[in-house]
């Protein structure tokens, strides 16, 4: 009879937790506890001795060291974000273009989809490294026309270097578009065709329809793609920040060790969080206040069109 104390709802709640239990255990053991521990490490000086790890609390010394004395880390970090902004823009635009092309009713859609999704299967650090060494990652034309030379001449180095990096790895950058393309396509398919037809009747051309219908409709997809792409760039197999953290972890002689490595990882995570927040703020769906204004402009155009047609009809009848 004890069971009766739990209501039906409470019992179902318990059952939900039972299904969630494996994940909860994993979350605590492999995520929450390590997360806290890594924060503690980042505030301490960790020494490996024969007896085991010895930790002493040093406050924010590790962080101070990273920003004041360390010569490598901050440079790598700024390089990464400079590149990431460029790549993010390229990936988001490119995948939208491809998705819009594939959204038309064309034959062989499946084949194209297979091609554009293929890189997801093969992107991994060592494979990309091999391809880059081989020089197979740039569009051949860019090299032969000396685009990179022009760029370095025209722009300051801080801007030219990431741009050239983008060009020499252009295909690899585009390779990250596989998932965004599919996400955009899923979003585009949901837009009702009749909306476009209505807009066409109202006199809106393809260009206007893109800005006023397509873009607002897929705004949530842009947000998802932005977050997805940044997270993937930040954890990709060729990320120099991560390899630096990795090598510092075991390099105890020169500004390394678990403490500094953890501090680096935390700085990286926090900057990434800021990056994601920026993406959210830039791409979050806004209230459509612009539509009102544009509608009147469209109406004017439609009226003019009607007037023209009426005049033409009159001319034909005369």
């Amino acid at each position: 009879m004890k069971k009766k104390r739990f209501g039906l709802v409470a019992r179902r709640e318990m059952k939900g937790y039972i299904f969630l239990l494996p994940w909860l255990i994993g979350f605590v053991c492999f995520f929450a506890v390590p997360l806290v521990q890594s924060f503690i490490y980042s505030l301490s000086n960790v020494k490996m001795t024969a007896a085991g790890r010895k930790m002493s609390y040093v406050g924010f010394d590790n962080f101070k060291y990273l920003f004041n004395e360390d010569t490598v880390f901050t440079g790598l970090l700024t390089d990464f974000y400079r590149e990431a902004i460029l790549r993010l823009a390229v990936i988001l635009v490119f995948s939208l273009v491809i998705a819009m092309m594939l959204n038309h009713n064309i034959k062989g859609k499946g084949v194209y989809r297979t091609i554009f999704f293929l890189p997801i299967i093969v992107v991994s650090g060592p494979v990309l490294q091999r391809l880059m060494d081989e020089g197979a990652t740039t569009v051949p034309l860019i090299e032969s026309y000396g685009v990179s030379g022009i760029i370095s001449e025209l722009l300051p180095a801080s801007l030219a270097n990431p741009l050239n990096g983008l060009f020499t790895q252009l295909i690899l950058v585009l390779w990250y578009s596989g998932v965004p393309i599919l996400i955009y396509m899923a979003g585009l398919q949901k837009i009702d065709r009749s909306v476009y037809e209505a807009a066409l009747i109202d006199g809106a051309g393809g260009w206007v329809a893109f800005w006023k219908i397509t873009l607002p409709a897929i705004q949530p997809m842009i947000l998802i793609n932005g977050i997805y792409t940044l997270v993937f760039l930040a954890t990709s197999g060729l990320n120099s920040v991560i390899s630096e953290i990795n090598s510092r972890m075991f390099n105890t002689s020169f500004g390394g060790g678990y403490g500094v490595a953890s501090a680096m990882a935390w700085v990286y995570t926090l900057t990434l969080a800021v990056g994601l927040l920026v993406i959210y703020l830039v791409t979050k769906p806004r209230k459509a206040t612009v539509v009102e204004v544009s509608k009147t402009r469209e109406q004017i155009r439609v009226e003019r069109l009607h007037a023209q047609r009426a005049a033409a009809r009159k001319g034909g009848a005369a």
């Binding site: 492999f30 995520f31 506890v33 390590p34 997360l35 521990q37 890594s38 490490y41 790890r53 977050i227 997270v231 930040a234 954890t235 920040v241 991560i242 953290i245 990795n246 972890m249 678990y258 490595a261 953890s262 680096m264 990882a265 935390w266 990286y268 995570t269 990434l272 969080a273 994601l276």
Partner: peptide
């Protein structure tokens, strides 16, 4: 969202 490096050191230990 939290990148792997943060968890790298503690899970390794």
């Amino acid at each position: 969202i939290v990148p792997f490096p943060v968890l790298m050191v503690p899970t390794y230990t």
